[in-house]
Design a protein around this nucleic acid. Structure first.
Lengths: 164, 164, 164, 164
DNA sequence: TTTT
DNA sequence: TTTT
């Protein structure tokens, strides 16, 4: 099981379309950024203040495929995962990136009222799982190098019928 | 209130004694690193795997004072806060540090079995709030110091009587 | 603070319009039922199973007013509160009702995409707080007797500008 | 997966030793009551108030065995589960009991410093799983009739090496 | 970079 | 009683 508890719960909006890749073993990995906004009344000025926080969220396995197919820029998501900090290097300097990891131990819910509005996005045809789109790990943009090198079990044993 | 939800829940052990400072207005700020350990059985090898995650946690106000007085290296803590990423610069290069912020909207619980052991440390005399120990915000070491060398040190057992 | 942690997090849909009342001191109390649905694949039959759970949720103070004005039957809500079991009597028999209580220590978020659909409900004009609609506690239907007798402080000190 | 979120997080102390039973299929079920205590300052009197809440918690499968072997009256536990209300009948009257259910989707952590003190309770020898202690469902005391009739998959596929 |  |  675990020693300790490491849990993150977020509800926010996607800053852009998900970035979905496939590991050599065929498992999907989806990266998104998620915005949450806090607001409070400033004690001094009495003015309302606002601060938007951007979270890096990484999905693995079946949930990554669902995110890749149904979530879009602006989508509202519930996410339950765990905090993980990766070390990476650039120009000989070590850096750290903290992400919220969502795999089988976590949860994801699309919160958009897809049925009430008329602009429910047509599910993007996902690349077949048996035929990984990007078997080789591509370069990632600055600040977000090769994610997901953590040893992660395969996520096959999962029901497929309805994505969410 | 807020748009969205930004919540972190941790149970782990302190990597070192808390670092308590005081803001010019007299409010306390306490920094700690907290270790949580995940373990799982590797699918390939069948071996148990373990990974320790180190979290930076920052407490503000009254809860910071309590942490400073009663939490010590090795203490087990429950923490509920929110994720926040700070930007800072070093040698002209922007870097980011993600922390768990605990203030009035959060919660903290010391989980050490204070009653069973006999070697309760005397609560460290805290600096009075009216007389800030460190009126000027000092430089922090490197902003991302030695913490978290990925090895859980021995947690000197301890316990105590009072305020929570 | 507290000894222990008592936290409930729900996302679900309202089974009916909120029932809003006012305490003698003018504070609002809103009762709703919230449905969450679990689904899983049955090991024996391989069939998908489903179970809907109905939760009683009670809001106090400002958040109760917001629920009363903006939430409706079918609305999707995020709720963070605490578990509380009330004892009541009927025909000389003690019974117990467990509720999720949401007050200043909790949180509520309306998750309906109010902007995308065209049928955003016009905010129902709430009874003015100074003129309680129902100063005397009315009879409640079976299974749900007089809620909210718990000593609860006033919830006045709260920003009012935007409800959510 | 699920529609909605149904999550309970508790840290509290056991009101008594766990009540462990075995289902006909050999799976363990453990029932406990868990106390959490809230305290707050009363607005009127300025006095500190306290209220202890008792929660019924039901564990299934491997986690039920761990609870049965290592948790005792007074033990401090972290529990993550879901809310579930059962209907039962007594003297022709329907009643309801709300419980926190902890199975594979949940989590449990013993928070007692078992290693540092010398009075770590000797693990009670558990009945072997292959030889269910109580194949037939016994009567339960009032207010707590036959739990766990919910269709629950088997909990065999679980690592066994170390309980926590 | 999102959202209200 | 809700929702997909």
């Amino acid at each position: 099981m675990a020693r300790g508890v490491n849990k993150v719960i977020l509800i926010g909006n996607l800053g852009g379309d998900p970035d979905v890749r496939y590991l050599p073993n065929g498992n999907a990995v989806a990266n998104i950024t998620l915005a949450t906004t806090d607001s409070w009344k400033d004690k001094q000025s009495g003015q309302m203040q606002e601060r938007t926080e951007w979270h890096r969220v990484v999905f693995f396995g079946r949930v990554a495929e669902v995110v890749g197919e149904y979530a879009r820029k602006g989508s509202k998501l519930y996410v339950e995962g765990r905090l993980q900090t990766r070390e990476w290097e650039k120009d000989g300097v070590k850096r750290y990136t903290t992400e919220v990891v969502v795999d089988l131990g976590g949860q994801m819910q699309l919160l958009d009222g897809r049925s009430q509005g008329g602009d429910a996005p047509a599910p993007r045809q996902s690349a077949p799982r048996q035929q990984p789109q990007q078997p080789s790990q591509q370069q990632r943009p600055e600040q977000q190098p090769a994610a997901a090198q953590q040893a992660t079990p395969d996520y096959d044993s999962f029901d497929d019928d309805i994505p969410f």
